[in-house]
Amino acid sequence: MKSHCLEFSEPGKVVIRVGPAPQPAADQVLVQTVYSAISPGTEMLVYRGQWPANVSTDSVIDALSGSFNYPLSYGYCTVGQVIAAGAAVSGDWLGRRVFAFHPHQDLFCSNPAILQVIPDDLDDETALFLPSMETAVNLVLDGSPLIGEKVIVVGQGIIGLLTAALLCRFPLAVLSTLDAHPLRREASRDLGALKCFDANDPEFFTALGGVPGQGGEADLVYELSGNPKGLSTAISLTRYSGRVVIGSWYGVKKVDLDLGSFFHRGRVSLVSSQVSSLAPELTGRWQKSRRLHLAWEMLRQVRPSGLITHRFSLADAPLAYALIDRSPGETIQVIFDHQPADSR
């Protein structure tokens, strides 16, 4: 048996490295991957060569620890089944369906302590959305939406869509979403966002209550577009003393902000949100385990597997990344199906 692992060899290029099947150590299990998902945000920064210098690949995921240098394996949405266990691991692990924060690889070894057992009532494709849903939960926690507030989500990629799906469950005055791509606006409506605006429409700013130089009507705006211009848009749509939660990571892309008109006098708060940590003011009551448990529950309620727009074999990985890079409006969630072609 051989192992196949996706590797970013240089910006704009991915290859599949073939090697011998790994053998689990005494305290490890061997996982055979069924599906893995491409992160259209962070992972595409790696593909495009937009990762900032001197920033580690990840500070909390064991499989991604270390400095950033090409070539490298990157990814953190993997679902599979335990097919072998080391001598020190309970045999109960054999056959379990698990989620792993692990790069795209069809066979890999892991300490079972860092695997997430998939609940029996969730299918494998739904489980793929665990990291994205956990991020959405974290964004909602950081934004602290209140009853009767007006909220806008800028960007309806997978994170924006899941965040909007959670916000739809709050008794807000109004929830509006903004995106340039029709496919994503349609998905936003399907998830419950009744007011979805086209970012390419010159009238969207006025329609969302914005007044040039005077801010807008939103109490809370989420910037989740991944586009640096989205942050200026978010600030300009926020009302006096409102807050903007920034979930986008722009990598090396520079942000040009207008902080000289409404922002200063408007007392707008900018909040950085990143899923690797919880807001300090929440840590007396919230732990990552509680957040993760809630993410599983939200997957049960939202059932986001319908957001998968494309499936590729791992061998066709170059086509998958090229599609996301060149035609983002055609995709929402792209996944790899690691199963043999005759068993799909």
Rank of each mutant, 00 (worst) to 15 (best):
M1A: 15
S3M: 03
H4A: 14
H4N: 15
H4Y: 15
E7F: 09
S9H: 03
S9W: 04
S9Q: 10
E10C: 12
P11Q: 11
V14N: 10
A21R: 14
Q23C: 04
Q28I: 04
Q32I: 09
Y35V: 01
A37I: 00
I38R: 04
G41K: 09
G41Y: 06
M44P: 06
L45I: 08
R48Y: 06
G49R: 12
P52I: 04
A53E: 15
A53T: 12
N54E: 15
N54D: 15
V55W: 15
S56K: 13
T57R: 15
S65L: 13
S67G: 13
S67P: 05
F68D: 00
N69Y: 14
Y70H: 13
G75D: 06
Y76G: 00
I83Y: 00
A84K: 12
A84Q: 12
A87K: 13
G91F: 13
R96T: 05
F101M: 15
P103C: 14
H104A: 10
L107M: 15
S110D: 09
S110H: 05
N111V: 09
P112F: 08
Q116I: 07
D121L: 05
D123N: 14
D123F: 07
D123H: 09
S132I: 02
S132H: 11
E134W: 02
A136H: 07
V140G: 10
L141C: 09
P145I: 02
I147E: 13
I147D: 12
G155E: 01
Q156S: 13
G160W: 01
G160R: 03
L161F: 01
L161E: 03
A164F: 05
A173V: 10
A173S: 14
A180W: 10
H181R: 14
R184V: 12
D190I: 01
L191F: 09
G192S: 06
G192F: 05
A193F: 03
A193G: 00
F197M: 03
N200F: 08
D201P: 04
E203C: 07
F204P: 05
F204D: 02
F205H: 11
G209C: 01
E223V: 11
G226L: 03
G226T: 04
G226C: 08
P228Q: 11
L231Y: 06
L231P: 00
L237C: 09
T238E: 03
G242P: 04
G242A: 06
R243V: 04
I246Y: 01
G247K: 07
S248L: 01
S248G: 03
Y250P: 00
V252T: 15
K254W: 06
D256K: 10
D256C: 08
L257W: 01
L257E: 05
L257I: 05
D258I: 03
D258Y: 03
L259I: 14
F262P: 01
G266K: 11
V271Q: 07
S272N: 10
V275R: 00
L278C: 02
A279G: 07
E281A: 13
G284N: 11
W286F: 12
S289D: 10
L292V: 13
L294F: 09
L294E: 10
R300H: 02
I308L: 15
I308W: 14
H310D: 08
F312G: 08
F312N: 07
A315N: 11
A317T: 12
A322Q: 15
S327P: 07
V334A: 11
V334E: 12
D342W: 08
D342F: 08
R344M: 05
